[in-house]
Design a protein around this nucleic acid. Structure first.
Lengths: 290, 290
DNA sequence: GTCTGTGAAAGGATTCACAGCT
DNA sequence: AGCTGTGAATCCTTTCACAGAC
């Protein structure tokens, strides 16, 4: 990239690679855990192990943020926590609305993760009139009719969609029209949004299917067992489609493609195996500032 | 790759790229929807739009599976549904256990996605004795003590961890010891597993943080507003770490990295093909690859 | 003419390996 | 001596663009 002449590039180069951005939260979590244990500094090797990546990748990632480490020593934990938080935009408060308070929506609302680290549940919205007024996670559910006023009134720019697939696009359109520019979609649907709007998708069924793919490969080590499927024909059935298919579906939950912290690549072991980074009782969830 | 001499390579080349595997579930979902509407054939352009990717990518992906299309016509929907299902290992039944029946675990158990398409919830497990015997989603919750016998008794190879972060590694170790080789982790922790075990992670707080990053960029268009953070120092505070830190977070839910299907499904082609898919207004997030 | 399948080019991301600071 | 920061090499993914099948 840059000539690399100055040993302090520019604090923040213009573009941080997406892959790096996706890992910053992992580093932040590991760092916060260290911070809680009052660990003052950490080496790239140690931090990488705690985050489940290898040290070369971590150093490269940090190099995009600037030179925050000290050669021969490592990184100052507190300082890095601040820098990464700032880079991720977590030093400010982000009001979030959750639309669709079913099982999943309620679980999300109850999840502590929202309350901490810059995210605040500004409102819970559901289309069922019977839900209106009911408290979930200490917050009264509001009816969909109020969606627009809630968004504009609270300056919400991030929305979470946890509705059934059939309602997702409609909800999405309304959120966007009201001013939301980032959406976390749990519904198993591809959402269409105008340019400038960010959508991330979380799809459980997709994750399970990816696991099934690898699981199958393990099982059929060297041999491929093809068991008969109920109703499955090798050739396309000319008849109707319905029948066996039933409803497709799925709870959403997915992201992209990374194949997990470890696993298949035998060598990745180095990073993970290298250390039992987690403490016996879990690695500490984390910590972060309110 | 192969010389491409034979127009029917080998039905299944040895290795399908991870990025492709991660997209197969998307194609499958779109195809199933078409199948339900009794659509007989579909072009790469149409299917790509429905799945939220561009057609070149889709064709390349399918080329790894074999030549299942017909030039000048498109793909036979039913046939492709079968081929992809088979490739993903969904033509067989996968018993799954969910450990940790809190809000999230219950939401997952209730989610229809499990019941369909090859996955079956074989058991719900929780450490709270008070939960034992209680029915959730029609299945009686069992105590953690029975974890090993449940796994071996049902031949479970896929486990879902929805416990608090502190219990995740321990649960993971027990699942693996009992024979589970694929894990879907919802706890905000990096899990250590032996080689051969696949772990996929889903982390909500990470997804939100990634959205916040892009959201911040949009806000500071051309100008970077640095609002003062409460308690945030530029220099590392030498003092203790606690104080402001509070609790970190995170409901999990993440995967990899894909940033969303992006804009319109309709003209995805144009957008992508044209060139910079991102909009003119800046860098816009964008789409991430795996 | 239409639309798939795929080499080849382009673009990213990861890993290597070592120069250079402490 | 120890550890970061980073060019260079490698590997993976996406996009282009067109030959070839229908």
């Amino acid at each position: 990239m840059a000539t690399g002449r100055t040993h302090r590039p520019a604090t923040r180069s213009r573009g941080i690679p997406e892959a790096t951005v996706a890992r910053l939260p992992l580093y932040l979590r590991a760092l916060t855990a260290l911070s809680e244990r009052s660990v003052p500094t950490v080496s790239s090797e140690e931090l990488a192990a705690a985050a489940g990546v290898n040290s070369a990748k971590l150093r490269k990632d940090f190099s995009y943020l600037g030179s925050y480490g000290t050669r021969g020593v490592g990184y100052d934990v507190e300082y890095l926590v601040y820098q990464i938080s700032r880079e991720l935009g977590l030093t400010q408060d982000w009001p979030v609305v959750i639309v669709g308070i079913g099982n999943l929506g309620a679980a999300l609302a109850n999840y502590g993760g929202f309350a901490s680290r810059g995210f605040r549940v500004a409102a819970l919205i559901d289309a069922d009139p019977a839900m209106a007024g009911k408290p979930v996670a200490g917050i009264a559910v509001q009816h969909t009719d109020e969606l627009e006023s809630i968004i504009t009134g609270n300056g919400v720019s991030i929305g979470v969609i946890a509705t059934p697939a059939g309602a997702a696009q409609q909800v999405c359109d309304r959120l966007v029209a009201a001013g939301v520019t980032s959406i976390l979609n749990f519904a198993p649907t591809v959402l269409s949004v105008p340019e400038g709007v960010d959508v991330r998708k979380v799809d459980l069924s997709i994750e399970l299917q990816i696991l099934a793919f690898h699981e199958q490969r393990k099982a059929g080590e060297g041999e491929r067992v093809a068991l008969p499927i109920e109703g499955g024909d090798l050739e396309p059935s000319p008849g109707g489609s319905r029948g066996t298919e039933g409803e497709r579906v799925a709870l959403p939950i997915e992201g992209g493609a990374q194949a997990g912290p470890m696993a298949r690549a035998g060598q990745d072991t180095g990073a993970a195996a290298g250390g039992r980074q987690q403490g016996p009782d879990g690695d500490v969830p984390a910590v972060m500032p309110a």
